[in-house]
C-alpha cells in the first residue's frame, strides 16, 4: 500500500504537453532515475526541494504549479 501523501503533482500532464517527454528523459534532465520519476508521479516519493525546483525549471513552471499541497487531503 502506498504511503499517503498530501502532495500531488502535475508532472504527468506537463510531460505530455512537453512533446510527450518520457520519464527517462525527464529523469536524465534532473539527475534522477526513471523509477524515481515514476515514484514521484504516483505519489510514492516526495522529492527534495532541489529536485522539485529542477522539475519546475525543466517545464518552465513555478514550483507550486507542479506540486500542489492539499493539507485537507
Amino acid at each position: 500500500m502506498a504511503k499517503p501523501t498530501k502532495i500531488t503533482n502535475t508532472i504527468r500532464s506537463l510531460r505530455f504537453n512537453a512533446d510527450e517527454m518520457t520519464q527517462a528523459e525527464l529523469g536524465e534532465k534532473i539527475g534522477v532515475t526513471r523509477q524515481t520519476i515514476i515514484a514521484i508521479e504516483h505519489g510514492k516519493y516526495s522529492p527534495s526541494l532541489e529536485v522539485a525546483f529542477r522539475i519546475a525549471v525543466v517545464f518552465d513552471q513555478p514550483v507550486d504549479d507542479v506540486f500542489i499541497y492539499s493539507p485537507t487531503k
Binding site: G31, V32, T33, Q35, T36, A39, Y45, P47, S48, V51
Partner: peptide, 10 residues
C-alpha cells in the same frame, strides 16, 4: 544504461 545509477531516493 542503468548500472550503478544512484539518486536521492535510493
Amino acid at each position: 544504461s542503468e548500472a550503478g545509477e544512484v539518486d536521492e531516493r535510493d
